[in-house]
Amino acid sequence: MKTQEELTEIVRDHFSDMGEIATLYVQVYESSLESLVGGVIFEDGRHYTFVYENEDLVYE
């Protein structure tokens, strides 16, 4: 089982391919040991929310 830090790094690596990240945040109250819920804001102003669970990243 991966730690929350490892899950965060996986998500950061994925989004870094889309541009320069200004902020990546995790909603700790919605996340667990198996899933990571949060959002990412890019330097150009784009903002996505995401759920990473079971090695699957869903964002909008």
Rank of each mutant, 00 (worst) to 15 (best):
D13P: 04
Y52A: 03
V51H: 13
L57E: 01
G45F: 03
S32P: 10
D17T: 14
T23I: 07
Y25D: 04
L7C: 03
Y52M: 07
V58G: 07
A22C: 06
G45I: 01
E60A: 12
F15H: 00
V28C: 07
F50T: 00
Y52G: 00
T8A: 10
V11S: 01
L24S: 02
Q27L: 09
S16A: 12
S16K: 15
V58T: 14
A22Y: 08
G38C: 01
Y48I: 12
L7Q: 04
F50R: 00
Y59E: 03
F42A: 01
D44M: 01
E53K: 15
I41H: 10
R46H: 07
T8K: 12
L24K: 00
D44L: 01
E53P: 01
L24A: 02
E5N: 07
E20S: 14
I10P: 02
L24P: 00
V40H: 00
A22W: 13
L36S: 02
T23E: 08
Y59C: 05
D17E: 11
M1R: 04
L33T: 13
E5A: 14
G19F: 03
I41N: 03
S31V: 11
E30M: 07
Q27D: 10
V11W: 02
M18H: 09
E5V: 08
L36A: 04
G38Y: 02
Q4A: 09
M18T: 03
M18E: 04
Q27P: 03
V28Q: 14
E53C: 09
S35F: 09
N54H: 12
E5I: 06
V40R: 00
V28T: 12
E30S: 13
D17Q: 13
V58Y: 07
E53L: 15
F50W: 07
E55D: 12
V26R: 01
D17L: 14
E20T: 11
S31Q: 11
E9N: 11
F42H: 01
Y25S: 04
S32C: 07
I21P: 02
V58S: 15
G39V: 09
E43I: 10
M18S: 04
A22G: 09
T49I: 06
F15R: 00
Q4C: 06
E53T: 14
M18D: 04
V40E: 00
E20L: 12
R46N: 06
Q27N: 14
Y48F: 12
N54A: 08
L33M: 14
S16H: 13
Q4N: 05
Y48E: 01
E55R: 11
I41K: 11
Y25K: 03
L57Y: 04
G38H: 01
T49F: 05
E20W: 08
E34C: 06
L36M: 13
V28G: 13
H14S: 08
T3C: 05
Y48P: 00
N54K: 09
H14A: 13
Y59P: 03
E5T: 09
T23G: 05
Y25H: 04
D44Y: 01
E5K: 08
V40T: 03
S35R: 07
S16W: 09
E9M: 09
E43H: 14
E43A: 15
R46I: 06
L33Q: 10
Q4K: 12
S31T: 10
V28W: 06
S16G: 10
V28P: 07
S16M: 12
S35Y: 13
S32I: 10
M18C: 06
M1F: 14
L36G: 02
A22R: 15
T49M: 07
V37N: 07
F15Q: 00
Y48N: 01
F42N: 00
S31K: 08
S31C: 09
V40W: 00
M18I: 09
D13T: 13
R12W: 12
A22Q: 13
F42L: 09
G45D: 04
G19Q: 02
I21W: 02
V51T: 14
E20M: 13
Y59A: 06
G19I: 01
S32E: 09
D44K: 01
G39N: 07
I41L: 05
F50H: 00
E60M: 15
Y59I: 15
V11P: 01
E34G: 11
D13G: 13
F15W: 03
Y29V: 06
M18V: 06
L24V: 10
V11L: 07
E34S: 15
L7F: 04
G19S: 03
E30V: 10
V37K: 13
T49R: 14
T8S: 11
F50D: 00
K2H: 13
E20V: 15
D17A: 14
Y52S: 02
H14D: 03
Y29K: 08
Y59H: 07
E30Y: 04
M1P: 13
N54W: 08
E53N: 09
V28I: 10
S31I: 08
H14F: 15
H14E: 06
E9V: 13
L7D: 01
V37W: 10
T8V: 13
S35I: 09
H47Q: 12
V58Q: 15
N54T: 05
S32A: 14
L57N: 02
Y25C: 05
G39Q: 05
V26L: 06
V28S: 15
D56K: 14
D44Q: 01
V28Y: 09
V37G: 10
V40A: 04
D13R: 15
D17I: 08
V26P: 02
F42C: 02
A22V: 08
T49D: 04
E9I: 08
E34F: 07
Q27T: 14
E6G: 05
E53V: 14
Y52I: 06
S35W: 06
L36T: 03
E6C: 06
G38Q: 01
I10K: 15
G45R: 03
H47A: 11
A22M: 12
M1N: 13
V51M: 10
K2A: 07
E43R: 14
T8F: 09
V26T: 07
Y52H: 02
V11C: 04
T49K: 15
V58P: 01
T49S: 10
T23C: 08
G45T: 04
T3R: 07
F50N: 00
E43W: 10
V40Y: 01
V37D: 03
V26W: 06
E6V: 10
V11N: 01
M1W: 15
L7I: 15
E34Y: 05
V58L: 11
Y29Q: 11
Q4T: 05
S31A: 12
D44G: 03
H14M: 14
G45H: 05
L24R: 00
D13L: 10
E43L: 11
V51S: 13
